[in-house]
Amino acid sequence: MLDIQNLKAGINGKEILKGLDLKIGAGEVHAIMGPNGTGKSTLGNILSGRDGYEITDGYVDFDGLNLLEMDPEERAQAGLFMAFQYPVEIPGVSNANFLKSAVNEIRKARGEEPMPAPQFLKLLREKMALVEMKKDFIGRSVNVGFSGGEKKRNEILQMAVLNPKLAILDETDSGLDIDALRIVANGVNKLRTPNNSFIVITHYQRLLDYIVPDFVHVMYEGRIVKSGDKTLALELEAKGYDWIKEEFAAI
């Protein structure tokens, strides 16, 4: 599904990713953890195609495509989705209108006809139930006047409607209370299939109680320095990151 080889990238001349390798297979959930400022969010931004980063080395294969050569919308159309840490507000554009445009652009890129409106509404209602969104949500402007928790739920809703092959969740759990966390995690779990993969970027083990990962990676100094199964997250929770830093310093 995704194969990142020796990825080196930075911003304003400062190298942030220093030769990162990561392989993600179909149907797998990978958690990426690590202290602040180690490049977790940068990785998400580069994979989704945000402007402003210099990529100096490496290759990313996404389902046979050269990901780094693609425009952000092409990546989205190819099935890559990013749940943003800070979702933006779009005044005057209704959630339904926004999502319908997104769905139909992705369909168009695949040579499919636009989805008929009734079918779209049915899909939207079904997925709204999944993340427990209120009915009036359809006509409200994208994220305008939404609480922090609602914005994050909206990200999961968009993901559910667009049904991507690979979803990157960038600190989706930050700022969520326990109920919102449960709703978000529940939304993700319902979307897990043998074909869909997830990258879950998080600071806390807490989220991983709800979204149980197949693999846990620790990022430090722009690289993945340790990988393991879900028990690694528990170990990090118990011991903190210092032992990782020490281990890394010894190399």
Binding site: E73, R75, A102
Partner: peptide
Amino acid sequence: FYCQQRGLS
């Protein structure tokens, strides 16, 4: 970027 990430040009 947000819109593009959802597939819009």
